[in-house]
Design a protein around this nucleic acid. Structure first.
Lengths: 147, 147
DNA sequence: ATAAATGTAATTATAATAGTTACATATGAT
DNA sequence: ATCATATGTAACTATTATAATTACATTTAT
């Protein structure tokens, strides 16, 4: 059975962080090591990484010397690639929590607003398509230099 | 003292819904009536409407015959106008919940990701600038016709 | 064999959001 | 004047969403 829950922003961040960490390592990296570096939990790491693996963004190996590693040069991947791999939605659907309330089911308001949220989420994805992992890495090193 | 909390998506929806309701009414409308129509709470309505009032999108009057009413024709307002009036952020900042964790404060990762979120939120706003209240009203009536 | 890794279900803990209560203030109607 | 009824907003509670943890099955190099 495969885990198919909704994927939220923090998992997107985790993925970006992990991919950059992997790109700096020559060896495979375990979920424990990644978790320590990202200040999160190994299980959260594995949940995210297993999704990246399914889409072919990373390789995972089990056993004593196992862990995660990159398949190709990740620098050219865009943030959109990552978001799509995870199924992240930055603007969720739903009219607050009253999705099934009688006020909306007949007014059409819900579906209209949902299409607005879809359009916004698409706009987010287009924005992410402009940003490559490489760009994030460059900005980080720039920041470090300033410090 | 003025309420300055974070404004979330559901409050944006509430505002859109309320403005459309007001545009169909000739009289002033109380928060009770609006709440009933939007399936929410009168206090939530008042919190949102008081923000719209501060920006001049609606008028509010107290007393026996009081309530909310439109100042000008709201049809030409865009959804961006409403979002800005409320201070709604559709893509929040912050790297999950670990904003102050030691993993980010020195890496620059947090500020880099925050600028990504800012860019996404701006993209959302630009998308909303393309949509007028009038468009939402038209779509609703179209939907009603189909039913 | 076994130690150590991933994969994921199930549970618990925490944070974000929505709803409610309470009350101060204002105002039109009588 | 007073009274019923409206907004404005703080403080609290309830609910939902998200993150972290526990547990364990599976895999694999040593």
């Amino acid at each position: 059975m495969i885990w198919e829950g909704p994927v939220v922003k923090s998992e997107f961040c985790l993925a970006v962080h992990a991919l950059i960490y992997l790109s700096r390592s020559n060896d495979t990296v375990s979920s424990d090591e990644l978790a320590k570096n990202i200040c999160t939990n190994p299980v959260c790491v594995r949940k995210v990484m297993s999704r990246l693996k399914r889409v072919g963004l990373v390789a995972a190996s089990k056993g004593n010397t196992g862990g995660y590693s990159l398949i190709a040069d990740v620098s050219q991947y865009t943030l959109k690639d990552i978001a799509e791999a995870l199924g992240t939605r930055f603007v969720t659907k739903g009219y607050g929590k009253d999705i099934d309330s009688p006020c909306f089911e007949n007014s059409g308001m819900l579906s209209v607003m949902n299409s607005v949220f879809d359009a916004m989420n698409t706009a987010c994805m287009e924005q992410l398509a402009k940003i490559k992992i490489k760009d994030i890495k460059n900005q980080i090193s720039n920041n470090l230099r300033e410090v």
